[in-house]
Design a protein around this nucleic acid. Structure first.
Lengths: 370, 370
DNA sequence: GTGAAAGCGCTAACAT
DNA sequence: ATGTTAGCGCTTTCAC
């Protein structure tokens, strides 16, 4: 049978309280006593029963992470980052897939499974800004993403507008004036698509470039196939463009495939930039310029402030909105054609592909912006 | 405060035992009594306390899934599949990332966290066949992958040798005779690399094609960059080849990038085939022929037999080894050049990219082999 | 069919 | 600085 506190106490010749104190690092224990308890624990290979601890303390030591789908690279990389952060903080992550479905997202907020977690990091996709009231829950909740703003909970997200503006400005600096967009959502104001499109328009305005609605490629979803379809439609429409801003990397890679199929060269004929800095963006042909939206920082911050709320003793402080820093990552897909220096940078980037490990990528040509 | 069994019992005017019986679907309850209990449960919005239930019953309703890294697409897609299966079976999945590190893998097998799960699905990467004894654990364990064979537990895996042989035969049928390999591990006999290389050699032997060690590209890891590096080395060595069998899709996509950089055309100059059927393989340029190793089936089977073990009452039956069916997926990267019919197939595949949703992919040109 | 009571292993008051 | 004790909410004998 597996050892309990009682067994340890008996062997060590102390009471269970003393053993409990040792385990929980309480102060005021005589070193000699502590030593004996530790030996007894080792001898019995004692491990605290987590169910009993949870039942008594009301804490589980787990936090939830709700996201649309692990098979979407962005969320897989986010989950990876959250799990690593949680580990550093000594807690366990329980992942929930929602499929981006609004009803499942709402259901999950009051699911019995919430008992298993002390708090939740929630990246909704189906929920809209009008659903903010659903986020009034009786446990610590940290919101991610750009579906809901001004809600009742802490919110960690990225600088969508600024980053999209920076991406567009980067294309403009390369001399591009006819910049198509892939992934626009019709009429959306907030949400990733709406915000990033706003940044795009701000950049155009600032540069005095007229906005042309014909350059917008609309999609509902943001999978690779949607990027490809949107690009086919843009090409079929006959509209002229010399650059593409894909509202995420996956879309952009789909669009690039269609551009290349059509015989167009990237970046010579059309420069492309994405958003997310997926691992994959380092390995496409050409390598993809993109925005690093600060995913690691978002994961770390979300875990940290969730644990702050969980451990808070004083009454709840008002919800915070925290924005991660972003960077423009310049790669081959926006390398200036013609300039010798630029060409060097492009080939240097290509040449490092072999050394860029997936474990510690060192993106070529990085510009810090904020 | 949250309602307990006592509250429900009081409202319904019965004892807590009766309420418990209703909740656990025990037989022999008078319909009228059951009805009253159900109403009380609804009125109080009662949900059983899972910690208390676990403490008493020794069951948690969770299963563990240990894998190297979620940011590797193969494992993200595997995790997705396992979570969906588990959901169908009414259990929750707790994911553990090992980083493929042997020590962490061993540690995890006896981690306190195992208390939180009723059983474990374990996909090791650092563990070797000599470590099989570590798998003798006191809880239900299902092994995945090809690191350990003949161990003490149930094992669900893929037909590596047969599938690799089928992939190579597919290239040979296209008239290829000089088939390079990317991802070989020096001296490995079992493990994904060793087994797949064996299938490759079997296909060569059967076709009377001599094996040429100069055609092997070695890598330690299987990230995209390793595929790129191995291909650079092959090209630099001056060895001639007309096809590449990449031991997984990620490696193959890395190798393809280098081939294209070098001005080689796929499939005209070099045909390529991978292994895994990642989502991504449908969207590369050209689309990647590959092996669907039966990932969905593996996930479903692993969950099912793990739950069988967890719920087993009779003494443990001997460990089983279960092999999933595989398929060769033909896409553009191995389309025969020259034949009109083949060209049509290639362009049809390209043409459907727009319709292939990530939710329900319908791969173009599928051959069922087993 | 239903009830009463014990106790899973732990933490947290309260005592000493 | 250490011991005693009372539950946390549930399942599970064992009665009736």
């Amino acid at each position: 049978m597996v050892a309990t506190l009682h067994d340890v106490a008996q062997i060590a010749g102390v009471s269970i309280k003393t053993v409990s104190n040792v385990i929980n690092d309480h102060p005021h224990i005589r070193p000699a006593t502590k030593q004996r308890v530790l030996e007894a624990i080792a001898e019995l290979d004692y491990h605290p029963n987590l169910s009993a601890r949870s039942l008594r303390s009301g804490r589980t030591g787990m936090i939830g992470l709700a996201l649309p789908e692990l098979s979407l690279s962005y969320f897989a990389e986010l989950a990876d980052a959250v799990i690593r952060s949680a580990e550093r903080h000594g807690v366990t992550v329980l992942i929930e897939q929602t499929g981006g479905d609004r009803d499942r997202e709402i259901g999950l907020l009051s699911s019995p499974r919430r008992q298993l977690t002390d708090g939740l990091i929630f990246s909704p996709l189906g929920l809209g800004n009008d659903d903010a009231d659903f986020l009034k829950v009786g446990y610590p909740l940290v919101l991610l993403g750009e579906r809901v703003f001004g809600g009742p909970t802490d919110h960690v997200t990225m600088r969508n507008v600024d980053a999209a503006r920076a991406a567009t400005e980067h294309l403009i600096r390369q001399g591009r004036r006819r910049i198509a967009v892939v992934g626009a959502h019709d009429g959306e104001v907030i949400g990733s698509a709406g915000l990033r499109l706003r940044g795009y328009r701000e950049a155009l305005d600032a540069a005095g470039i007229p906005f042309d609605p014909a350059l917008l490629g609309f999609t509902t979803l943001w999978h690779r196939s949607n990027g490809a379809t949107a690009m086919r439609e843009l090409l079929a429409s006959g509209v002229q463009f010399d650059a593409v801003f894909g509202l995420n990397d996956t879309l952009t890679l789909g669009a690039m495939r269609v551009l290349q199929e059509a015989g167009l060269h990237i970046p010579e004929d059309v420069a492309t930039i994405g958003f997310d800095d997926l691992d994959e963006a380092q390995y496409s042909l050409p390598t993809l310029s993109t925005i690093d939206p600060g995913r690691e920082e978002i994961a770390e911050t979300a875990v940290r402030i969730l644990l702050e709320r969980i451990n808070a003793t004083d009454p709840a402080s008002p919800p915070r909105e925290i924005l991660a820093d972003f960077r423009v990552i310049e790669r081959e897909s926006t390398a200036t054609h013609g300039g010798a220096g630029e060409r060097m940078r492009a080939s240097a980037a290509a040449g490092t592909v072999g050394e860029i490990g997936a474990s510690a990528p060192a993106p070529a040509g990085v510009t810090a912006l904020s």
